[in-house]
Simulated assay, not measured.
Amino acid sequence: MAGIFQAVSMAMAAAALSGGFAVPASAAAFRSEYTVSYLGLTIARSHFESTFDGNRFKVSGSMSSAGIAQIFDDTKGTVTARGRFAGAGPLPDDFVTNYTSGDKKKKTQIGFAGGNVSKVVNIPPLKKRGRDWVKVADADLRAVTDPLSGTLIRADSAEKVCGRTVKMFDGEMRANLVLDYVSKGPVSLPGYSGEAVTCRARFVPVAGYKKGHRSIEYLKNRSKIAISFAPIGTTGVYAPVRATVGTQIGTITIEARKFEAVN
């Protein structure tokens, strides 16, 4: 159980769910709430608020430990992403996350320019890595998004939400998430009732990780990941409402409890 939060963090990144889920330019503001559960027990909760002005977006959120997870170090964090929509996906401007677990604090700030990473700040600085570390090259940081902006998908239909590769960088790890279509079906929750599309997701580490790391190898070769997306109005933007991620310690489930526009 002590490794749950490490697994959750990795799972959310793998599922492009390390942050909140935003809405298109047709809505001025949006609020969403999510739970993270393990073996049917809630271990974390998150809240997100999004605002839009034309094609511009800003998403801010927070996450904290809950339920049985509170017997370990108190864990909480905040995240913010800003950018604009361009074509089928977002072009982020900046991404900032602050994370605290017990007495350990970490901050990551990423700047973007034209879809490429232009600046990375980690506080405290990343530790020196060994020879088995896959280094991040300059080419790896081109045409990428942060994990939060990466959840924004524009598509002409539900079937076209899948069939794409999401390229993410979180300040240390560079990874791809390959989405393939599985099915469509109804979903109902506060703020939304209608159809959702489910994609099978394959996690592909690119750089910024240790070769042979068991958790990474499991996510890459054995994990079963599924993400369900729901449309926001008639604007053609889809956002995740549910994800399941297989990890070494069991299946992590991330599920929306509220998904509504703010008047």
Rank of each mutant, 00 (worst) to 15 (best):
M173Q: 08
R257L: 08
L91T: 12
S37C: 11
G233L: 00
S215E: 15
L152D: 05
Y181V: 03
A25G: 14
F229Y: 13
D156E: 14
Y181R: 10
S46I: 03
E49R: 04
R45L: 03
A22C: 12
F57G: 13
A81L: 00
S149A: 14
V8R: 01
P240I: 03
K104Y: 10
N55M: 05
D170S: 08
E195P: 08
E33A: 11
G194E: 00
V117E: 04
F72Q: 01
A201F: 00
A11V: 07
A143E: 09
K127L: 13
P90F: 07
F52R: 15
R200W: 00
D74F: 01
V245E: 01
T151H: 01
A13C: 12
G191F: 01
K105H: 13
A28V: 14
K76F: 10
G111C: 02
F48T: 00
V197C: 09
G61C: 02
S18P: 11
I4L: 12
V262Q: 13
N122E: 00
T42W: 02
Y218H: 14
E217S: 10
A137R: 13
G150H: 06
D156S: 15
R242K: 14
G115K: 09
I68Y: 07
L17A: 13
D74I: 04
A243R: 03
N55I: 09
F30V: 11
N55C: 07
L41A: 15
V161P: 01
Y99E: 08
V117F: 10
A113H: 00
R131M: 09
S101E: 12
F229M: 10
Y209I: 00
F203E: 10
V120N: 04
Y38G: 06
S64A: 14
E159R: 15
A155P: 06
N116M: 05
I252E: 04
S223L: 01
A2G: 14
L148F: 15
K107N: 12
F72S: 05
V241F: 02
E33P: 06
S215K: 12
G115R: 05
K104L: 12
A16N: 13
K104E: 11
C199I: 10
S193T: 15
A69R: 06
A196E: 05
Y238S: 03
S223K: 01
R214P: 06
I227C: 08
A27E: 13
F95E: 09
E217Y: 10
Y38Q: 05
L17H: 11
L152N: 08
A15N: 04
G67N: 10
V262M: 10
R142L: 14
F203M: 05
K184N: 14
T100M: 02
Q70G: 14
A155M: 02
T42V: 09
I68N: 08
V136K: 02
C162D: 09
L126Y: 07
W133N: 06
S60E: 12
Y181D: 08
Y34D: 10
G83Q: 10
R154T: 07
P240N: 07
R222E: 13
A25R: 12
Q70F: 03
Y192D: 02
I153M: 02
T235S: 15
A256G: 09
V204N: 12
P205C: 05
R31N: 15
R129T: 15
G115P: 01
A81K: 00
F85H: 13
F95C: 04
K224T: 12
T247G: 10
G194L: 11
S37A: 13
A158W: 09
V182I: 11
G114N: 08
A201K: 04
D138C: 11
F229R: 03
G250A: 06
